[in-house]
Amino acid sequence: MTEARANMMISVWRGMGSTGKFETFEVPAQDNQTVLDVVTWIQQAADPSLSYRYACRVGMCGSCAMMVNGQPRWTCRTHVKRVLRDNQIEIAPLRNLPVIKDLATDMDPFFDKWVKAGGVHRASRSRDMPIQEVKPDTAQRQAADNGIECINCAVCYAACDTVSSNRDYLGPAALQRAWTLFNDEKVVDKQAVLDAVSGSGGCHNCHTQGSCTKFCPNDLDPLGSIAGLKRETAKSFFRRGSKQC
């Protein structure tokens, strides 16, 4: 059994919508404790009105992402020891998303952009046709495989400064999804994928700052995916130009 130690000072964002302020709670420190444990302790022992979101608690669902000391993290996979500074931690809702209440954000803009980037699968075969063979060792399949572990936690979206300053920008997760579709041999209309990310909020707005790749808790590389989309859209630009001539 773990032994309780000195209390930590935890600042938690409280409020509805765009208004609110940090409220500090004294939370008992334990030997093994994640940031999600801390938030849960506050909700269960100090203030039951605290709103936050989580599901699996083991880094599978991506529901519990929050800003911890100003950086986006999965709170369930962040040990308190890694983020405790001067016995304090600041916990806020995910950046770049509207706040519903306290630590719970409205994920609609994130998923709307995911759909807008062409993220929905469009089947190229009917159920009566034979299943398409997918060879796992091709370069294209491996490029697709690099992105499919994304669980849409929106950590990259919260980390992205371009999303902050350009509200129409589709964001790293949606663009990475488009890149996996582009490399998926089951997707026939590649040009439709490129067209979906070539609009005014598309991949060309990325400034290549790389916060998405730096903060991705799954060690994925959205920045590389966006670079891939830029390369392919540039090729497509010349192909189309030469066809029109």
Binding site: N166, D168, Y169, S198, G199, S200, G201, G202, H204, N205, K230, T233, A234, S236, F237
Partner: peptide
């Protein structure tokens, strides 16, 4: 704000 056409114009 920056579509593929503007992006290409700036790069070229």
């Amino acid at each position: 704000m920056l579509n593929a056409r503007l992006y290409m114009a700036q790069r070229l």
